[in-house]
Design a protein around this nucleic acid. Structure first.
Length: 158
DNA sequence: CGGGTTTGACCGGCGC
DNA sequence: GCGCCGGTCAAACCCG
């Protein structure tokens, strides 16, 4: 948390950052409760900017391990662009979850480390360049890994 | 008619 | 220098 990004002063909703994770938590809770699975709860929050393949490996390993949650504190490794990378692992048969935002799919790619394709979504709101990537777990196809990149600059509810 | 989705192609970065 | 890999764009198509 404490991801205080350079939000414009004309943003009436300064606590939108708090609102965002709240909804996600709701989903996670619902999902968890719905399936009564206490073995999952992967909450991975990172912001590694290094374009290194190691990054993917780490994430994959983390997800593959499961059974335990990891939390990365804000390391403030900011360079110039503030790209918050937040990955969520959710148990769902569908990857298209409406979190209150409108997403436009702009690409689909098949990763080598996974037999399943990866979907790329982008926020439809003008001025909001938040991206989202959805990928299925390679070990457990019933798990969905959603990675959010960036911060919304507009209210979730229209 | 407009926006959203789809798929392939293209590109940039890194490794070898 | 080339190949691999991941990410993005764009044209076409589909649906409301």
């Amino acid at each position: 948390m404490s991801d205080n990004n350079p939000k414009p002063p004309d943003s009436p909703e300064s606590d939108f950052s708090k609102q965002w994770p709240s909804e996600l938590y709701e989903y996670l809770n619902l999902d968890d409760d719905q399936l009564a699975c206490d073995e999952l709860d992967s909450f991975v929050s990172g912001h590694v900017l290094s374009p290194n393949t190691d990054q993917a490996n780490e994430v994959g390993d983390l997800v593959g391990s499961s059974s335990h949650h990891e939390e990365f504190s804000t390391n403030v490794d900011e360079k110039k662009e503030v790209r918050d990378r937040v990955a969520f692992k959710t148990k769902s048969e569908i990857e298209i979850m409406d979190d209150g935002f409108k997403w436009r799919k702009y690409g689909k790619k098949k990763v080598k480390n996974s037999p399943n394709p990866r979907n790329y979504y982008k926020c439809s709101v003008d001025g909001c360049s938040v991206k989202k990537t959805v990928e299925r777990e390679k070990d457990d196809p019933r798990y969905v890994i959603t990675t959010y990149v960036g911060t919304h600059t507009h209210p979730s509810n229209s």
